[in-house]
Design a protein around this nucleic acid. Structure first.
Length: 439
RNA sequence: GUGGUCGUAGCUCAGCCGGUAGAGCGCUUGGUUGUGGUCCAGGAGGUCGCGGGUUCAAGCCCCGUCGAUCACCCCA
């Protein structure tokens, strides 16, 4: 068979699926802009040292190579970006003099990682990222605002409900140092495995790798077990009897996030003390989001606060951000048929053709509709009307316009056909553009 | 990157102990001489993912490869 096969991890959508993706992107973009975020695009490519700057986190980076390059040419190594946060940090430093701070931006672009693909996990995928960065100091209220923007953006999309698990690294690390554990970063990484390997294995790791006592490990696990949809977690943590200034700070910041979310986006956020995040540049609030019924996909929207990701030595630009995994969310829903579009073309009206001589007249009719924003195309041939209707039906085009002395518009779903005044006719709002529908 | 499972028509799948392929849906033509969807009758479409091997004979067995998926890893 000479038919080309797909490339592993590089999903391509059919027109009907792409319509869904486009509308999701449009919706997110509108929502971000309503919150005052400016759009930014960065190049696909970053220098390797930039990409690996923050990373012992051995990300699988796709490296760029020129075909004609000399084997030993000392070219600056280039690679495709694996997220939008690292390029953005670079962008902020590069343009710091031209940006106004605090700077809020959204960025919706593909990312690449050379990992082994799985369901919801690809080598090329789209992320929608929002961040707010400031110079030197970033007020904590932005850690409250960012998840609310995401909640607002996700609202109105026909997706399964999501729940955002939130923690604060100050809280966890403060707690760990409060109980006397030295390497709090490593403790976080170990706690992060809790869901996967279980409490006993985590305790063993804490004891073996960090020389924690049984009591210390036990305290860490007790902390990790705490979660609540309101601020009651604060008392639960305090009841563990650990005191530490950093812990207090983290508790207050997390309480602020949870409290605001509980009123502005009820049901969205849950404080969850076992959320740690593997990435090491997070310094405050951290977020992970799961989609109901699709927990196996992992987090579909993650992020957090980073104080030192962008720093040129003189100035630091602390920020907080969240990335929506557009491909991770959409591709599984599209492939399983849970999500689709009302049609596979933008066309709202098909102008039927009685005979080929009528084509220029039909073109003129189509243009009158287009001038008022109604997507219209003319029938490909003057086949029997039954065939022309079928042409529209197969694509999901809702209306067929019949030419003649009296113009008639047929809604091919209901079969209803009525005379129309073309210069005043408009389709029902829900038919003007394709819509996303969940099955 | 490591390991497991799977790969037959556009789609979903059947195919016995190896004997050179079948169904449903879809597509197409006609019944229906400009109005589709239902119904009826016909038709087209497969080098069995690809390459090699074993065999008189391979969709079926073996090896490799590509793709899908799962676990590890990591994360959107």
């Amino acid at each position: 068979m000479s038919r080309p096969q797909p490339l592993s991890g590089f999903p391509e959508l059919l027109p009907r699926q792409r319509i869904v993706e486009q509308q999701v992107v449009d919706h997110l973009r509108r929502a971000f802009e309503l919150h005052g975020f400016a759009g930014v695009q960065t190049r696909a490519v970053e220098s390797m040292d930039q990409l690996l700057r923050k990373g012992e986190t051995s990300k699988e980076v796709y490296v760029l190579r020129r075909l004609q390059a000399e084997a030993d040419s000392g070219e600056a190594g280039l690679g495709l970006h694996f997220d939008l946060t690292v390029p953005f940090a670079r962008y902020v430093l590069e343009n710091a003099g031209k940006l106004q701070f605090p700077f809020r931006r959204y960025q919706i672009q593909p990312c690449w990682r050379g990992e082994r693909p799985q369901e919801g996990r690809f080598r090329e995928f789209w992320q929608a990222d929002i961040d707010i960065v400031d110079r030197d100091d970033l007020p904590a209220h932005y850690e409250v605002e960012i998840p609310l923007v995401i909640a607002d953006a996700l609202r109105g999309l026909p997706l399964p409900p999501v729940r955002m698990h939130v923690n604060n690294r100050k809280l966890s690390q403060g707690f760990y140092q409060g109980v006397g554990i030295g390497n709090t970063e490593e403790a976080l990484r170990i706690i992060d495995k809790l869901d996967k390997i279980g409490a006993e294995a985590v305790a063993k790791l804490l004891i073996d790798q960090l020389d924690a006592t049984t009591e210390q490990a036990d305290a860490c696990l007790k902390l990790a077990a705490i979660s609540s949809t309101d601020t009651s977690f604060v008392d639960e943590v305090k009841a563990l009897g650990v005191s530490d200034p950093l812990l207090e700070e983290g508790l207050a910041e997390l309480a602020a996030v949870v409290e605001a979310a509980a009123t502005e986006a009820p049901g969205l956020v849950v404080a969850d003390m076992k959320i740690a995040r593997g990435l090491d540049y997070y310094t405050g609030t951290v977020y992970e989001t799961v989609m109901e019924g699709y927990e196996s996909l992992g987090s579909v929207c993650s992020g957090g606060r980073y104080d030192t990701l962008a720093s040129d030595g003189k100035n630091t630009y602390p920020g907080v951000g969240l990335s929506i995994g557009i491909s991770r969310i959409l591709v599984p829903l599209l492939q399983s048929g849970k999500l689709t579009a009302t049609r596979e073309v933008p066309t709202c009206v098909l102008v039927a053709l009685a005979d080929e001589d009528g084509r220029s007249e039909a073109n003129a009719l189509a243009q009158r509709l287009r001038s008022r924003g109604v997507a219209t195309q003319v029938s490909p041939s003057a086949a029997k009307y039954g065939k022309q209707i079928k042409f529209a039906d197969k694509r999901g085009i809702p209306f067929v316009l019949f030419p003649g002395d009296e113009l008639q518009m047929k809604d091919i779903r209901s079969g209803e056909q009525v005379p129309v005044d073309l210069d005043s006719w408009e389709p029902p709002t829900e038919d003007l553009h394709p819509r996303i529908v969940s099955a």
